[in-house]
Write a protein that binds this DNA or RNA. Structure first.
Lengths: 123, 123
DNA sequence: TCGCGACATGTTCAAAAAAACATATCGAGG
DNA sequence: CCTCGATATGTTTTTTTGAACATGTCGCGA
């Protein structure tokens, strides 16, 4: 697995408008596109159907003034997708927010953990 | 409405184990119980069925070493629920984390907003 | 001992979300 | 002009989730 699989810790969801948001899943897709050069490959990598991945991309593109992902069909590479400058910015921004959040709540999180039940004990 | 209705900003979900977490909804329920003295009233207040609210409470109780909510049936008050000391702690801790998060990502969030499409333009 | 209000649970039905399946399109290159 | 892999969408099926409804329990106080 590549990213977004933290089994414990904080998850950040940035709510831009009621309904529209960017969370761990969309950030991972952006990252996947950036690394693989295609929506399909990014989706496959995270065990997600192409359709679903594409839908999320469409949603993100519609949410910003300028699209975050640019796609090409056919051609020498037989299609593909890349992050636009804004796409890179949004991804980097989200990742920074994740780090900042983790740092900010680190102490509080430790306080929570001492109250948590051990995972092992299942009835 | 009382709480948990931010239309914009960050939402925090603390993932304790895969599947189980405490997020805005559960925090609001804890707060509701604390203020109303009953699961039912807390649920009503946030437009949620008693069953659903109770299910969430059960989930939280099971997730920590010691229950966060203590309930009583019958009696002079005809039943009710209160936060245990741990419940108070968890709620306070979560609210602090919300504030810390908001402060930590404030600057980055501003950067995101300038790229966002205006809400008004709907096709 | 009956009623009240809240806890505790089970069941059933509807809505929403995700997965699965099916095409259609594009365009360089063989 | 046909192939190839990826984008772009539509349709159908399945799964998950949530809402709705139905019961049963509890224990004090009238």
């Amino acid at each position: 697995m590549k990213a977004g699989n933290k089994t414990s810790g904080a998850r950040l969801r940035i709510v831009l408008e009621p309904d529209i948001a960017i969370g761990p899943g969309k950030a991972d897709i952006l990252e996947g596109i950036r690394e693989t050069g295609s929506i399909a490959a990014a989706g496959r990598r995270m065990g997600m159907s192409y359709k679903r991945a594409w839908l999320l991309v469409e949603g993100m593109n519609a949410c910003f003034k300028s699209p975050l992902v640019e796609t090409r069909r056919g051609g020498q590479a037989r299609g593909g997708a890349v992050l636009t400058p804004d796409g890179e910015k949004v991804l980097a921004c989200y990742r920074r927010m994740e780090v900042l959040t983790a740092q900010a709540i680190d102490g509080e999180l430790a306080g929570l953990r001492v109250m948590m039940a051990d995972i092992s004990e299942r009835t």
